[in-house]
Nucleic acid binder design. Structure first.
Length: 587
RNA sequence: GCGUCCAUAGCUCAGCUGGAUAGAGCAACGCCCUUCUAAGGCGUAGGUCACUGGUUCGAAUCCAGUUGGACGUACCA
């Protein structure tokens, strides 16, 4: 598609240039740069070139210029004559698809699940950090958005050729961890997740909630938690044991959720192991004069250069902070695996943190600090207000996925398809995931969003299940075709048959998929893919509705359309993968 | 106070580096199942793109200001 655009752009620019010379204008070829657009309606053409910018140069109405260019092309390039149209101040081009339809469909079917891939990041190491849960409670809705974006961006970058590594940094250290430990020590009564019959991360999370209610009555709870952190730091063995046990419970529970939601990592980092990393680097920076020391011995960074205040990096007692740790982890990671790009998928509330982090790394002389990127995503709110994890108003990730699954199941049963889908439970889970991921990824990452549970589980309209349903209908059609294969042994794929408007629309969409993947990669924005998916499905739905494919009396027509349908399905599948929509043969 | 982001239909959101009449879905109201899965298709209605000014042939889009909101802001993560 890009080549075609470029060809036309050059052809028209040359024509304009030639007209300028003819008019006696002394202007270099460099000034002729056309903008390519898509006309508002398909019947107007496939490409549009606005001519307004040339009005001044030619001292002519752009409408006239458009007419002149068309005349010029008619005279000098009769082959192109039929595809060009001057519509007011625009030159509209109708692309001749007859030559490329066969090629594009074959390309798609040959490339299979690699169709659409680009080499924008080939041989580039890209690391994506996401999820990063605390080990004092289970995952909630905010994590689901984080995970959705992290997985999707990773796949999109990989589809753009990147050598990709997904990493997760587990926050398993700090006073918040002590809170659930302390509550367990007091109220736990030696229970275990097994004995209580509770999923292990929820088991730990319940004690975190318990701590917070308890600390409202007994303010000294906070002090006790802090004292526990000190003991833990000092290596007191019973606390280390308790931590190991509870930490394992949480992590194994969280990993179950990852499995269920299709989230995976190439490497886990643990803060309990990496938190010392930053200290030495900060001290080195102090020796090099990058940082300064206050009278109480704390070490600071001066941020006035980027119009911020100042930031403490080592406390007066010499212990490190979140920022210090992140400095260390970044350096360690670059040493381990020299990435060309590191994407941190972290909430927008940490925008300041990353601004400071990147600045400090630059000041420390690491040139690769320019390759760090904070992919910030907005808060997820409920229709009736805010989520607060301490007050238990969060939407729990497991609960949400389970709820979506059970609604999907009910829906399948209500449609009397339970016996037709194969494994009902698995199908329901896939539908739930499609609903969830599509809902979360549809919205541009940077924006805050309102998550309406009722709306997300509604399966009509612009939703994940709608897209899945397209895939399932196509699959069903292809099975029916396979059953009748013998009737078509002599029929041939003839791209010239595919001339309906909707077929043209589909082919253009298929053609543009690589550009979509590229745009999504450049912008690190999965919503580019979701928008495309809906567009493709919508056009296909209409086609499916209006045109009989298997029932056409002409065998060549059936086969040719089946080729097109197969190509659509392939692109659908490839795009599904990029945004975490499970493909279903039947639903 | 300062910093970052945001404001588009009743609701939830698209709108690419400025370009033709601002688009979807939901909700509302109609039409279409002896026809490849109706989880579908088609249609009607719904907008001063927060406000004001500027740049431009042209602004939802860029700039400035105003209003409203979210988040952050010197020893939590």
């Amino acid at each position: 598609m890009n080549d075609i655009k470029l060809d036309w752009k050059l052809k028209l620019e040359e024509a304009l240039f030639a007209l300028a010379l003819k008019q006696g204008l002394d202007i270099s070829r460099d000034n002729f740069n056309l903008i390519v657009e898509t006309p508002p309606k398909p019947e107007m053409g496939d490409l549009a070139f606005p001519l307004f910018p040339f009005a001044k140069m030619f001292k002519k109405n752009p409408v006239e210029i458009a007419r002149d260019v068309k005349l010029y092309i008619n005279e000098n390039d009769p082959h192109s004559e039929s595809s060009i149209n001057s519509t007011g101040p625009y030159l509209n081009i109708k692309i001749d698809l007859s030559d490329i339809t066969g090629k594009i469909i074959n390309d798609i079917l040959n490339a299979g699940n690699k169709y659409g891939y680009t080499d924008n990041y080939t041989n580039k190491k890209v690391m994506v950090e996401f999820s990063c849960p605390n080990t004092n409670k289970p995952l909630h809705l905010g994590h689901l958005r984080n995970d959705s974006i992290g997985m999707s961006v990773s796949r999109i970058m990989a589809a753009n050729g990147a050598d990709l590594r997904k990493v997760n940094l587990i926050n398993d250290r700090g006073v918040h961890i002590c809170k659930s430990m302390l509550a367990y020590k007091i109220f736990g009564d030696n229970q275990t997740p097994d004995s209580a019959g509770v999923k292990s991360d929820h088991f730990v999370g319940d004690y975190y909630v318990k701590f917070n209610t308890w600390s409202k009555e007994f303010p000294e709870a906070e002090t006790e938690a802090r004292a526990m952190l000190k003991e833990w730091d000092d290596g007191k063995s019973d606390i280390t044991e308790l931590w190991k046990m509870m930490n394992d419970w949480t992590i194994s529970g969280i990993k179950e959720t990852y499995l269920k939601t299709g989230v995976s990592f190439d490497k886990y980092y643990f803060e309990s192991k990496t938190y010392m990393e930053g200290r030495a680097e900060v001290l080195k920076g102090f020796d090099a004069g990058v940082f300064y020391k206050e009278a109480d011995g704390s070490i600071w960074a001066d941020l006035s250069e980027i119009k911020l205040d100042k930031k403490v990096l080592l406390r007066s007692d010499g212990t490190s902070l979140y920022l210090t740790q992140d400095i260390g982890t970044a350096i360690a990671r670059h040493r381990d695996w020299g990435f060309e790009k590191l994407i941190y998928v972290v909430g927008s509330e940490q925008q300041y943190h990353f601004q400071v982090l990147f600045y400090i790394l630059k000041k420390l002389g690491f040139e690769w600090a320019n390759d760090l990127h904070h992919l910030s995503y907005g808060m997820v709110n409920l229709p009736d207000g805010k989520m607060k994890s301490r007050e238990g108003t969060v939407v729990d990730a497991d609960d949400l996925v389970d709820e979506l699954t059970s609604i999907a199941k009910k829906e399948i049963i209500a449609k009397e398809r339970a016996s037709l889908v194969g494994d009902l439970q698995k199908t329901s889970e896939s539908v739930a995931l499609a609903a969830l991921n599509y809902f979360l990824l549809q919205i541009s990452p940077g924006k805050d969003m309102i998550f309406d549970p009722a709306e997300s589980i509604s399966f009509s309209g612009n939703t994940g299940p709608y897209l899945q349903y397209m895939g399932a209908r196509i699959s069903s059609m292809l099975r029916k075709f396979e059953d009748r294969k013998d009737e078509f042994t002599k029929a041939k794929f003839n791209p010239e048959i595919l001339v309906l408007d909707q077929e043209r629309e589909l082919i253009k969409l298929l053609l543009s998929f690589p550009e979509i993947v590229s745009d999504a990669g450049k912008g690190m924005n999965p919503s580019v893919i979701t928008t495309y998916l809906y567009e493709l499905s919508k056009v296909f739905s209409r086609y499916y509705h209006d045109t009989s494919i298997l029932k056409d009396p002409d065998k060549d027509t059936v086969v040719s359309r089946i080729y097109l349908v197969k190509a659509v399905l392939q692109v659908l599948k490839n795009a599904f993968y990029l945004v975490g929509i499970p493909f279903l043969e039947r639903m």
